[in-house]
Design a protein around this nucleic acid. Structure first.
Lengths: 341, 341
DNA sequence: TCCCGACCTGTTAGCGCTATCATAGGCCAA
DNA sequence: TTGGCCTATGATAGCGCTAACAGGTCGGGA
């Protein structure tokens, strides 16, 4: 491999000169587009390889008006849920010319606004964004973007364009019904203190709706933010149990803190699910190794990612495609922490 | 907010016409560069806002030859380690003009090659890439790229340019020394079956080195791939314990499977750390909620991310900066699963 | 023989922005 | 006044690539 002056980056022209054909022909070879004779193709590829030429997509994208990037805007990468959504997206996009680019908002609407602006300034072919709640400015940008937008995770609200997700309100209701049906009555909620986690909020709303319909209210609640979720779950559980000793069910806003709580209860030798039941949310496979399986609901993360990516890639060809809303239905897994019958 | 024909995207010219100044002046206002009178500035910003104009970075990058993107190439997002590295990187980059863009290789060298090619085709300002082992083609591309490259996580080898990481071999040795010193003799290894996880391999090599120096060899080994790590840890532990009942120490290649194993041992009522000790690797905070704390070593993930980002951003201004290698030193935490003294 | 189309390659004109230099005033010291 | 030097703005020329069209060559059917 010969070495070159790193100060002058390689361009198509270098390859064109090295191989004795026009830049256009080099471009065609490198993109596998149009008719090029086998001999020429070989010659060009050989030159490109020996120079170590890497095409400049910036220039290519500008010239062709095609960027083939899909922006994916999510609140966080450090819990288990969004990486799995990403897996679903990549899985589908790998079979196309499109590539995902992720932006992380940390559940902050202001940051989301900035990330959307950044993303759009690259003129992506589409945008996948978590949640239906955005600032007015974000909403305006998305509406004007002129590219397909898919809002994911949640369908309790009005999508801007297309959407794939589950109804968190319904999920909360379903879980509450199961808990009440199993005979639990003194129910406490333990969850994130996140004003902008709208999905957790909606689940709790649905949950309380059903409690109310059964003449019940939450007897206690405990919130946290930051830190190791497993540990927080443990600490919160301890706090609730000591404050409300007669509690008979702990409903957690996610599986991680639920697992922490479960480990605590088991350590304390509590009768789970006889005297006290527990449930979380998300169906995180990661936790399958705990001796008792926590009741939970699968949030369909992988499938949401897949569908969203399919929608974006499907809309590339057509003109102005119709918005589409897909509702997925999480399955309640009672596990070992809700009484049967 | 007025609405526009989405078929013709907005350009600088639209803003320039709407505000009655030249495109150049609009560009200056939007980038806060050069002298523009307050009156003009206001006028332009108003026009840009009312149009909902978002600058086209593709064009901007091409014209200015500056992209301000930092490629980050990592094997996976679904374990706990790389998201934390990302956090460190973002933390530092947020204070600069640079933005991270991540690419995931799934521990496949071929995929890494493709991802590097893709990244370089966007002409990033720098590249952060996990590991020191790359295919010949990858190596050539990186060497020719003409931008700062920082290889992270590992320093047992020869960096291409700069590097930040820990010595996994040394980490393995340290852990082995601690285990041997604590009096354990019948030691088994449980880890990933990943030919391309070089860091896990190096840890094991260092580990066995010290065992050998003490006249010991591993009495058993068990490998896995895929699946829920916690559950795998449990299953592997069961397999090892039944196959080698006299084992007195279980060394896991990561904390997740270690935690699964720990939960299994506790469930079985084994005397931990008296009859059997356990240790993992990574120091994942996530697991802090387990009743017994697993012995582990912190891989300095956050700090690695920070340092790598600092190196890239520090090299933006200078000409051709000198390569730099930073070794970080993980701390051994004996937790509750290695005998004291 | 000529013409037509298939195949291959080249030429031209941008994509939307920014670097660079040019220019038009305004202000002050000499 | 004149020159010098600011500040504010505009004109011009690309960045590296691709779309669109313009040839040129060759072979075969009329």
């Amino acid at each position: 491999m010969p070495s070159y002056d790193p100060r002058r980056p390689l361009t198509l022209r270098d390859v064109s000169e090295a191989s004795g054909v026009s830049e256009m022909t080099v471009s065609r070879v490198l993109r596998n587009r149009g008719d090029v004779s086998v001999a020429t193709r070989e010659k060009v590829l050989k030159a490109a390889r020996s120079l170590g030429y890497v095409p400049n997509k910036i220039a290519g994208a500008l010239a062709s008006q095609r960027v083939n990037l899909v922006g994916v805007i999510i609140p966080s990468l450090s819990n288990m849920v969004f990486p799995e959504v990403m897996t679903g997206i990549s899985e589908v996009l790998d079979g196309t010319v499109l590539q995902p680019v992720v932006g992380v908002t940390n559940y902050s609407p202001d940051r989301e606004e900035k990330v959307i602006y950044e993303m759009l300034s690259w003129r992506p072919s589409g945008l996948i964004i978590a949640g239906l709640e955005h600032t007015a400015a974000s909403h305006a940008m998305l509406a004007q973007a002129g590219v397909p937008i898919v809002e994911i995770m949640d369908i309790d609200g009005t999508p801007l364009d297309s959407a794939v997700g589950i109804s968190h309100r319904r999920a909360g209701r379903q879980m509450a019904s199961a808990i009440v049906a199993a005979g639990y009555r003194k129910i406490a909620f333990l969850g994130t203190q996140m004003p902008n986690d709208h999905r957790a909020r909606k689940r709790l709303e649905g949950f309380e709706e059903v409690l109310a319909a059964n003449g019940l209210t939450l007897i206690d609640r405990e919130f946290y933010s930051g830190g190791s979720a497993l540990l927080k779950g443990r600490e919160m559980t301890e706090a609730v149990l000591s404050r409300s000793p007669d509690v008979d069910f702990l409903y957690y806003s996610n599986d991680m803190i639920g697992a922490g709580g479960l480990l605590y209860c088991l350590d304390k030798g509590l009768d789970v699910p006889g005297k006290i039941g527990l449930a979380g949310f998300n169906g995180v496979e990661l936790l399958d190794g705990i001796s008792r399986k926590l009741a939970t609901m699968d949030a369909c993360r992988l499938e949401i990612g897949r569908r969203a990516a399919q929608m974006i890639s499907g809309k590339q060809t057509l003109g102005k495609p119709a918005p589409e809303v897909i509702e997925l239905f999480p399955v309640l897994q009672t596990g070992d922490t809700i009484r049967k019958g």
